[in-house]
Write a protein that binds this DNA or RNA. Structure first.
Lengths: 230, 230
DNA sequence: CGGTATCCGCAAAGATACTG
DNA sequence: CAGTATCTTTGCGGATACCG
């Protein structure tokens, strides 16, 4: 069947204002969360769907189509033998990172303690790590980690006071850390000590075990408790 | 009549993620534009309504109530003889400025040329000026302006490489600039030269006429034309 | 002036079934 | 796996009426 029903008028604020224009483009429900997940690297449709519980497949498809029309992301078919199609941010899309991190820094104080039914996203944590990374506190540390969370594999590199992360295409790293997402969460928020995690087997480390301590220091997030009183 | 119909459950993303939490609080339609307008100072209900064409009075009232519950703003009744009630951001609300400006910096590139039916907001421009202000380019300039746009009066001060703006409570300033909002827009985007504006009477200056030139240099915004090719 | 209440039409979001 | 199609529900837009 032919494609029908193009943009019925896409609700706009109709203001000649940069903020309003920004909201016209990325202010709809789910849009910035899709961008958040793509900021950690290209994703397949089903992975986006899995990382955004509640979105509904039709809405995800609609958002992806809009974002592609706006040149914020592009669809790409991977070369054989993979052959799968992935969505990846363009440079324009990547330039949304300051918006997403500003919102994250503001929203962080409302995290509180996690309620049972709240979803944990590995992508969100990797992005938070990138945002939390402070070169001044780390000096000239150089570390490379492969972080495995479920079936996601992130390559994380710290060098010259800078930090890069990306999913997939794993290459050689000094250390490999494998844990589940709730362990990563507890670890970064200071609710679980590295030693504890190691002895209880919640984390598997290949390579230097002390590297886990450094990992936590590099990417520590403010704990919810600290924020409640602030 | 008694107050009824409290929060039917305010749609949440149900993710333990700072970005998602931020969107839960300020991600609804109109919310960030209300914050934008309040970032330039406390406002009365009718001024908010006038600055957000299309919002509809019931929705504005609902948003203000939500934002007050979240401690992002507070209602305040001005002391007599004014007696009017105003809405003003709390410190928490003011801390949203980086979010709004990050979005503005990103959205600015899509401004293009203004279409006839697009609204111009004085609050948005004053906020844009604050965001565009770069201390490095201005050195140790010290200037104070009273900017009059329609019935809004802004007090704008530059000193020590810092810039402050606020609406109302006007005090003594070196210069008074009076113009309409479309003139301010054209001026800041470099589409209208200060000289031109003065000779055609689109701007009234009290005080030093050359101050207008400095004003434009201090707060110049990238023009839409520059951005189209970037 | 500073709102609240209500009603209506429509667009966006949610849920689920289904197909190439 | 990568989406469409379809149906239901909720939220928004716009108008207007009303009240302290």
């Amino acid at each position: 069947m032919a494609r029908q029903r193009e943009r019925p008028t896409a609700r706009s604020y109709r203001q000649y204002c940069a903020v309003a224009r920004g909201l016209d483009l990325v202010g709809q429900r789910w849009t910035l969360l899709i961008v958040r997940d793509l900021l950690t690297g290209p994703k397949r449709y089903k992975d986006l769907l899995a990382g955004l519980p509640g979105i509904g497949t039709n809405l995800l498809a609609a958002r992806l189509r809009e974002l592609e029309e706006q040149r914020i992301l592009k669809r790409r078919v991977l070369p054989p033998p993979a052959g799968s199609t992935v969505y990846e941010l363009t440079d324009l899309g990547k330039s949304l990172e300051p918006v997403v991190t500003a919102l994250g820094r503001w929203g962080h104080r409302f995290l509180g303690t996690r309620s049972e039914d709240e979803f944990l996203s590995a992508n969100a944590y990797v992005l938070a790590m990138r945002a939390a990374f402070r070169s001044d506190a780390t000096g000239t540390a150089t570390e490379t980690y492969e972080l495995r969370i479920g079936d996601q594999v992130f390559d994380i590199r710290v060098a010259d006071g800078r930090c890069s992360t990306r999913e997939g295409q794993p290459s050689v790293t000094d250390h490999v850390l494998k844990m589940d997402i709730s362990t990563l969460s507890a670890l970064l928020h200071g609710q679980l000590l590295p030693k504890e995690a190691l002895t209880t087997g919640r984390i598997e480390v290949e390579g230097d075990a002390a590297a886990l301590e450094r990992f936590v220091k590099l990417f520590a997030l403010p704990s919810p408790e600290q924020l409640l009183m602030a």
